[in-house]
Design a binder for these strands. Structure first.
Length: 197
DNA sequence: GCCAGGATCGTCT
DNA sequence: GACGATCCTGGCG
């Protein structure tokens, strides 16, 4: 297994952590993928679960960085976030899409789909593919079943582009969605790119 | 190919 | 009692 991200990596501004997670490899159990799409949420942000203050659901956001914040969306999907910023500062990075690298057959079985681009191209899809459920809420991302490693050489110089976040109704104008430019595993096509000639 | 609608449940008012 | 940081299916063109 490769070296993992240093714990101090996560104890910074979520607006630094979110773009820098692009290209990093996220492993859960026997499956892994390269992170290609993220979104940043901080406590001053009306769309953030921590905006309303500490509650039973969002308490992990206020805790130590480098943990997993997992919650149920629409009563159906588990969504995975990485807690950022020092303990006491609530902020997190939503993992929106991965490019599958390890354990692809296991992902296919869990998703019930065969096309590679349908396995992890969405926040609800990747948690199903990786086997992430609510029981992992609060878990340390540097301990099994989790592991996060820095980008391998081929990913180190990938261009990261930003734009508006998806699926929210508040603070829609904030350009806090980040993605690896041109990657076809994104959850949605990039809304603002000009068409190539 | 695009769009509208439904599934489903924990959390907060 | 209402509302999602979503996904999939079916109907239509």
């Amino acid at each position: 297994m490769r070296e993992q991200l240093d714990p101090t990596f996560f104890a910074r501004s979520v607006h630094e952590v979110a773009p820098e997670l692009i290209g990093c490899e996220l492993k859960v159990g026997e499956s892994a993928g390269v992170i290609i799409e993220t979104e940043a949420y901080d406590a001053s942000d009306p769309a953030c679960h921590a905006y309303i203050g500490l509650t039973a659901r969002n308490r992990v956001l206020f805790g130590p960085p480098g943990r997993a914040y997992v919650y149920l969306s629409y009563g159906i999907h588990s969504l995975l976030n990485v807690v950022a910023e020092p303990e006491g500062d609530a902020a997190a990075v939503l993992i929106r899409a991965l490019e599958p690298t390890v354990g692809v057959e296991l992902m296919r079985a869990r998703r019930g789909r065969s096309e590679l681009a349908e396995l992890c191209s969405g926040p609800g899809k990747l948690t199903e593919a990786l086997g992430v459920g609510l029981e992992l809420n609060g878990a340390d991302l540097s301990s099994p079943p989790f592991a996060i490693s820095p980008p391998p050489d081929g990913w180190r110089q990938v261009e990261v582009v930003s734009g508006p976040r998806i699926g929210i109704t508040k603070a829609v104008e904030l350009p806090w969605r980040y993605c690896a430019a041109g990657n076809r595993h994104v959850s949605r096509p990039w809304p603002t790119v000009a068409r190539a000639a």
